[in-house]
Structures are given as structure tokens and as C-alpha cells.
Amino acid sequence: MNDMNSATLSPGAAATLREAVPAAGATKPHTVNDNAMIRAVAELTRDLNAANPRLYWADFLASAAIGYAGLFLTIGAGSTLAALGWAAMAVLGLYRAASFIHELTHIRHASVPGFRLAWNLIAGIPLFVPSFMYEGVHNLHHARTRYGTAEDPEYLPLALMKPWTLPLFVVTSLLGPIALMFRYAILTPLSLLIPPLRTLVLERYSGLVINPAFRRRPPEGAARRDWLWLEGATSVWAFGLLVAVITGVVPLRGFLIFIGIASAVMLLNQIRTLTAHLWENEGEVMTVTAQFLDSVNVPPPGPLAELWAPVGLRYHALHHLIPGVPYHNLAEAHRRLTAALAAESSYHRANYDGLPGLVARLARSSFRGAGEIGN
């Protein structure tokens, strides 16, 4: 990989890199753009768009193998301490494997042949989150005029909501696997017989969203075909697993351990989601820079971010600037931009130290907002 800095830029772009960018003191920060930063991002990352198939396959398969090994070792553990250790291994492995669903929504499938099918068979279907629940939804979150508005399926102004919404937002994720299993094992087959229920399932229960007002449109063309086979396969798996537990083919203890680990995976992802943005927009259309500053990077040296924000998610703000760059190139993109952009650049204002500080900031914002409403 080439070592790039401001010297590799076109003369016009290079001249702007050291421009001081005014702090966000404008009357309406959501209308301000840091054009110097945006030009630098375009110039410095244009060679980082190619996905590395070998890295995708090796990372995903290793993560899934670790996760499922941890699951089976947890089921067979002879002591509580050993079970907890193996369970932690299972959660982290499956969480990283499942996080590749984010990459599926951004990479060209031809660049990593067979990866989408393999991900669904190994992670998506077994964990009740087939890729159609994210594809066609997540791209709306990146739409220029949708981000942070009522039309964004992945946004809520959490920093401006009641303080009790934050723990509720996190804790409800523990019920995710049960809700998803019910959706596929019970609602899916019933909805084929009851048209109004089918409409409800398609609109309300077919996306990994956090905005309760979002309604999904029915898929068309190739997306519809993919949706149907993935939904059917997940329904067969969920219904078969339920029957196997009821008939005793699958021991109840093993099933509960599986659900517990899946719940922990969703809990960890929900905590990560809680800190992916600052959640401070009140529904107004935002500039690219404002969207970037409402998002979060947690770059090195903190090592733990790679565990709770894996597969490039620790560079979530940067990802909003360059969504087409694969996860394995984001660290290099961040290194180049950090070195090239002046300290006054907006780019550095989206970098945070770690999870505790982000959670505390969000909690303070929520309590402050509640106090202002009460006055």
C-alpha cells in the first residue's frame, strides 16, 4: 500500500489542506461544510476502494469458527467459570462474524464472489438476521437528505430524548433473538395465509432499524427474489429449531445457551450502536460535514474498540465520508487524513477515546435535555 500524504494531492487540493476550518460556532451548524476536509478525503482515499477477497474470507471464516467453537464449548462446559469464558469467546467471535452484514451493504458482490451466500448460510440465517434485513435499509441511512431525519431508519435523537430511553434502548436488544425467531417461525408462515399480516411483516418486521416510524417498501426484481429465498430459509431454520426443542431432539439447556449468546451479541451491537453517533440532530437535513461530526471515530491506540466495534466500525464517522471503502482500508485512510489535515480541521473533532466517555456524553446530553424541557 502506497504511503500517501499531502504531497500526493493535486496542487489546488494540497493548498487547502492546511486551511483553518472555522469551529462549529455558526448559527446552524448543520448547514456548514468543511470543503477542505471533503476534498482531502476524496484525494487521499481514491486508491483504497478495492476489496481484498482473501482478507474478507479469512477474517469472516475465522471469526465464525471461533464463535461457534465457543458456543459448543459453552454447552459442554463442566463448570460455571469455564462456561463463562467459552461464552465470552462465542459472543466476540459471532459478533465479529455477524458484523460483516455491514460490509455486504457496501461492497460490490462481484468483488468478493460467493461471500454474500456464505455469510447468510454461516451467520445470517442461523442468527435470524438474513442480509435482506439490512440491504435496502442501511443505504437509506447514508442518503444525503435522509440522514438524521424522520426518514432515516437508523436514527433517533437519543441525546435529546428522556434519560430512561437510553437504558431501555439497550436492554430491549436482549429480547432480539426471541423476537426474530418468533418472526420467522410463526409470523412468516402465518403471513402467507393472512394478507394484512403479510403487509405488517413486510413493513414493520423486515429491517434492522431503530426508528419506529420507518415503514419498509416491498422489494422488487432481483431484491424480491433474494428476499423470498432468504426469508424462506430462515423460516425453515427457525421453525425446525423450535420443533426440535419442543420434541426434545435439541436439549433445552443447549437451546437456552444459544439464545443467551445470541442475545449477548445483540446487546453488544446495541451498545456499539448507542455510541456510533452523537444523536443530536432534531430531524433537519444536514450537510456532509454535519453528518460526519454527528458520527464517531474511535481510532487507536485504544485496543478494546476492535472488540466492541469490529470490522471497521470503530471508524464510523470516516465511513460516512467514504462508505465505499472496505473495512480493512479504513485504518490506512484514517492514518493518511490524520497526518495531512491541520489540527483545526473538522476531521479531528470526530475522534473519541473510547466507549465509557461516549456513553457518559450521551447520558449527560439526555439529562441536560430533560432538564431544559422541565424548566
Rank of each mutant, 00 (worst) to 15 (best):
P157I: 03
P177G: 03
A150W: 14
P195E: 04
P212F: 05
G124L: 13
S173C: 03
L160P: 01
L160K: 11
L197R: 13
M133G: 04
L192C: 01
D152E: 11
T172W: 09
G136T: 13
G207L: 10
L166R: 06
T165S: 01
Y205P: 01
P177E: 00
A159I: 04
G176R: 09
I125G: 06
R144H: 15
P195K: 12
G176D: 05
P212C: 07
D152P: 02
L187S: 04
S191K: 02
L175N: 04
E203G: 12
P195C: 06
F128E: 02
Y184S: 10
R204N: 08
V129H: 10
A123C: 14
H142Y: 05
P157Y: 12
L192A: 01
N139L: 15
F128P: 03
V137M: 05
S206N: 08
G124D: 12
L190E: 02
R144C: 03
P153N: 10
L200S: 05
H142V: 07
E154P: 00
V170T: 06
M181Y: 00
L208Q: 04
T188M: 10
L193V: 10
V171N: 11
F169T: 08
R146H: 15
M181S: 00
P212D: 02
T172F: 14
T188Y: 14
A179K: 09
L160I: 02
H138I: 14
L193R: 11
P126F: 02
T165Y: 01
P196T: 14
P126Y: 02
M161W: 06
E154S: 06
P167F: 13
K162P: 01
L192I: 03
V209E: 12
V171F: 14
S173H: 11
I125H: 06
L202I: 15
P157W: 07
P196C: 05
L208T: 11
R144T: 11
Y155A: 03
L166V: 10
E151W: 08
A213M: 01
G176Y: 03
A159Q: 04
L175F: 08
G207W: 04
G148F: 04
P126K: 00
P177I: 00
S131W: 02
Y147E: 10
D152I: 11
A159K: 08
R144M: 08
V209Q: 15
A179S: 09
G136H: 11
L193I: 06
H141V: 08
S191Q: 07
P130H: 04
L187D: 07
L202T: 15
S191N: 05
E135Q: 13
I186C: 04
E203C: 11
V201T: 13
Y134F: 15
P157T: 08
G148P: 02
M161T: 04
L158C: 03
L200T: 11
S206K: 03
E151L: 08
V171K: 09
A185F: 06
